[in-house]
Design a binder for these strands. Sequence first.
DNA 1: AGCCGATCGAACCGACCGGTACTATCCAAG
DNA 2: CTTGGATAGTACCGGTCGGTTCGATCGGCT
Lengths: 221, 221
Amino acid sequence: MPVAKGSTIDPARTRAAILSAATDLLYERGLDGIGVAGLCAGIGISKETLYRHFGTKEGLVEAVLRERSDRVARWLAGRAQAAGDDPRAQLTAVFDALRHWYAAPGFRGCALLNAAAQHHADPVRAITARHLDRYLELLTGIAERAGADDPGLVGRQLLMLVEGATVVAAHHDSAAAADHALQAALTLLSTTTPRTPSVAPSPRPTPESPPFRVGTVKPRT
Amino acid sequence: MPVAKGSTIDPARTRAAILSAATDLLYERGLDGIGVAGLCAGIGISKETLYRHFGTKEGLVEAVLRERSDRVARWLAGRAQAAGDDPRAQLTAVFDALRHWYAAPGFRGCALLNAAAQHHADPVRAITARHLDRYLELLTGIAERAGADDPGLVGRQLLMLVEGATVVAAHHDSAAAADHALQAALTLLSTTTPRTPSVAPSPRPTPESPPFRVGTVKPRT
DNA sequence: AGCCGATCGAACCGACCGGTACTATCCAAG
DNA sequence: CTTGGATAGTACCGGTCGGTTCGATCGGCT
């Protein structure tokens, strides 16, 4: 069947569906753990469709990683913003979000870091580096608003706690990692924050859906 | 040439040489980034030799990872022990060692974690988990000797700092990561250590060679 | 009504994969 | 001196890889 009998021909929707399904499959099986054939079978498309949309397996991988990074970063930033203006509440919200992520079924660490560990190619590494940049920006902002002496330093230290917690959650102890990291993060923030921060009102938060599996593929019209 | 003209036939030495060369190659190229043929070419052996010693590519990989974990763990523990009895000095020694590791040419993160990100197979994951266990044991010991209220908790937090620093060093900032992490670690240790630890004499340290590339393959007799 | 583009399904391609078999050669031990 | 084990080198195996091509078929647009 060339075109599904009741389906709508909509390249944009097809592309999005491929991206979504491929994200899960590549995360579960590993970038090299599933071939293009298996990928297409799992997604439910033909090879030609995949290659028309993404040109190459590498192209698909990069698109997947970019979208994933965007989604995770927006999700975490949204959670922080939704927690209000208090930097400590924002930090708590970030690690709360991480805790749910760690507990999600099939959690296997950060998809971006895993990908960078598998493909040493420059594009993948660049996407991963930008991903860490986004984390760093969020955490440095929190350190700034908390009145840290050296927000850049504290931001990097918080980044290490986030990444370390993710590693430990993936390989050792998924349950308590986020809580222990949060406690350490709050301690770190306190000891480097001599003065009370000035709190200013912030705009309304927009809810973001979590980056981990939350439903199944939606049927097309 | 079936057997190198001036070489000694010594299976144990051959095995060790394969292990050493394969460790570097697999780390540089990734577990799936190099095939058995390329591996043998890079090591300078024939396929038959590799398969006689390790049975399978997976067998080789597991042997490489096990040996790597042993070496890194011994190296870090040795550095800590060589720093004397003061837990803070031991912690400093650990992150000093890490700093040198991060600065080594070709550093690309923890080989064990990278491997676990590539092969989801149980044996590899088990070796990685045990690796983290060893780190945790070392760090918890330091927390204990520092007189921490909850050495287990502090140990896990220090573990997150170590792993987080490694991730950040690999993908973001290899220069300052160890120092920033050390500062955070000392802060953490201080705030959770109300009482002064009792210092007892410890046995003499044995020097350990670093786990990263430090020379080239030694010629066989 | 009729065309165009999106899509499927399948065949096909050369390259490479992990792994085996065999021979020729060299060392070491009896 | 002979024999056996360790090794290099090479050819080979079936399978899978990423990627291309083609015909059939269906929806959307004019």
